Simulated assay, not measured.
Amino acid sequence: MTDFSKLALQYKSELLDKVVPFWLEKSQDKEFGGYFTCLNRDGSVFDTDKFIWLQGREVWMFATLYNKVEKRPEWLECAIQGAEFLKKHGHDGNLNWYFSLDREGNPLVEPYNIFSYTFAVIAFGQLSIATGNQEYADIAKKTFDIVLSKVDNPKGKWNKAAAGARSLKSFALPMILCNVALEIEPLLSPDFLEKTIETCIHEVMDVFYRPELGLIVEHLGTDGELVDCFEGRQLNPGHAIEAMWFIMDLGKRLGRQDLIERAVDIALKEVNYGWDKTYGGIFYFMDRLGHPCQQLEWDQKLWWVHIETLITMIKGYQLTGNRECLAWFEKVHDYVWSHFTDADYPEWYGYLNRQGEVLLPLKGGKWKGCFHVPRGLFQCWKVLEELAAK
């Protein structure tokens, strides 16, 4: 028998005793505001540039902890100082969010990346719930409107494609919008929320999920058809699996068990497909026709892929009782806790080679911030606690 209460304590303790204090103490820039995310194994700073989407994620994380775990003033202060830095420096004055800034807040990279916007939405949305601050709510709502207006061309004038070139649409945006819509639900009208959610579910489950493959593809032609090129053949099992817990959350919210069952079915297909049968762990990128991937890091084992799989599998088990989900949760749990955790310092490694050895000792960088590890620990702790109570 799985000991859910023991597991719940393991995830809770890792979150509250190690991971959250690490970011609270090591990442805050007390001089200029915002957060350092480029942190060595011991939490020392190795680069001071600030990446907007990681700043937004950290604001969201601390606001969420304040809203959902405990009203600790230091968590709220951490979120507010990050949000104030973002409000002042993160955009061009019209809520077009830059990709990165230097330490002082001067822009380095133009607002080409839609995820700078989506994470600003959830950051200010969650913080408006924590503070009741209307200005934060307005920033979240207006930014969300901009995101929706960019769905057909997320990079806007920063799109590098040649005129008339093959045009593809990406799975990442509808996937993230499934999560964003629920995050800022209190700020949206019920009709608007319902329409947005239905569009997202349709894109994820009926467009990017391909029944002939039993898998979700990362890019499609704008006509919704498969394309035989590097991007068109690309699979990202972690992305697809993560999206399935977003869909499960929506299924729960809408009272649609059929949607939850479909999400579980797809998640299980993805993890079976993406698991490295030789060394264990889940591949980062794959090619649906089995050709070589263009990404040289295709066979690396990444922290977020495995953490998102833990969330999906334990939610899948909770919501459907499917024992295969529980078996996968336990298998991935064993891999994660024996490979990504660091015996000597808090927070987790992000990048392993195919064999499961640490590639980079960093705890944060340009792509890894205060997000997947704490969010995953929080989600798993809460589900495991509910399972233990049953």
Rank of each mutant, 00 (worst) to 15 (best):
D249F: 00
P237L: 06
R57E: 03
K331H: 13
T312F: 09
L213R: 13
N67L: 00
P107D: 11
K366W: 10
N67C: 01
Y317M: 07
G125P: 01
Y279K: 00
T222S: 07
I80K: 15
H239Q: 13
E231H: 12
G364T: 04
T118S: 14
A343H: 08
G43A: 07
P346T: 09
D47S: 10
Q379M: 15
N236H: 05
R166S: 11
L250K: 05
E261R: 13
V19D: 05
K12R: 15
S128V: 11
L16Q: 13
K368A: 04
G156E: 05
E194R: 10
G214R: 09
L377G: 03
Y98K: 06
F115D: 00
Y209Q: 04
L289F: 10
W303G: 05
L359R: 12
E135S: 14
G274A: 04
G365Q: 04
Q379I: 08
G90R: 05
L226T: 07
L86S: 02
P21K: 08
G290Y: 11
L76E: 04
R354Q: 15
E70I: 08
L377E: 01
F46V: 07
L177Y: 02
E357F: 07
T312P: 10
V336M: 08
N113A: 13
V45D: 02
E58Y: 01
T48F: 03
R72Y: 01
G280L: 11
M1E: 11
Y317V: 06
H89T: 12
D47M: 01
K368S: 03
T37K: 00
N353C: 10
A172E: 07
G350H: 03
C38V: 01
R41L: 10
L86M: 15
W75S: 00
I184E: 02
E218Q: 14
V383F: 09
E225V: 05
D228L: 06
K277E: 14
G376Y: 04
F285S: 06
S149A: 15
Q295M: 11
N96R: 12
E77D: 15
F85Q: 04
F46P: 06
Y112A: 14
A63S: 15
T320H: 10
M1Y: 02
G274K: 08
G280P: 01
E330I: 09
N133M: 05
